[in-house]
Amino acid sequence: MFAACADPKAIEGLTWLTCYLTSGKHLDFYWSFVTVLALLAITAPTAMALGFGGAMAARSQFAPLRWIGKTYTAMVRGVPDIVYFLFFVIALDQGIEYLNHLRVCEDLSQPVFRGLEFHVCAEAKVPPATAAPFVFQAYGFSLAVITFAIVFGAFVANVIYGAMQAVPRAQLETGEAYGMSHGQVFRRILVPQMWTYALPGLTNLWMILIKATPLLFLLGVKDIVYYARELGGTKTQAYEYPHPDWRLFYFLGLLVFYLAMTKLSEIVLGRISNRLSKGQATAAGEAMRKAAI
């Protein structure tokens, strides 16, 4: 990066450290923090949307929809995350390629599964073999987001379902007495009130999601934990910047990052919780009302 770094073996001290910390691999490491933050930023709203949909489906009057909602939460919550991360991604990837295979391949006479091998024609590969490495990374990242969203969506669905059930019936009845329709009661009374009940559960899930991001590596996305392990490992003279086992320092860095993330989340979520409790017929809302007088 800098001119002084042209010959790493000849420099020492602070210059060495500066050059070391700005090597191409370290820049990739810094980018991987962005990857993790992007994953959180995309997965959280997607999981919320899935969870909200799941909760609405589970409460539906229409039986088949209710079954779908209940099956989704029961199945995903009942199977260990890691099984989903290992199985689901392969199934999703092969499923996409299989559908593409049926669509674009000319020769469909050969079976797709031959013994242990999975075959689709070259045109059906997703992404195509000619694609840039960035496309492969983006594809892997998208698979990761979908998997995370489906897994966490199921938990969100259960939290929101519980929160909707927790809104006192009297509140809804009052709305009905005012002549509101079913949908109006749902939008104006149930949903605004249920957040205060859902928030503690959602807060937990957000924290778990932050800590689950190292699973990205299982999905082939190089995340911060991968780079910390790779960069921290003993480097022999085969590398430009040889050094002994420094994994401890790298993992300490990750520790600080994750703790900072949780602290920041706690502050933000605390504020949201305060705002949501305002004017609610809950203990927290009541305490705020009394404090204001």
């Binding site: 790493p8 090597s23 191409g24 691999k25 820049l27 990739d28 073999a129 000619t130 790779e230 490992g233 022999t236 085969a238 590398y239 430009e240 910047y241």
Partner: peptide
Amino acid sequence: AEVVRLATEGAYPPFNFIDDKGE
């Protein structure tokens, strides 16, 4: 353009490793 994708581990010097440029 027949593209062949080669896969390596990238952690086994001197056979294969990720150098300091990230390659």
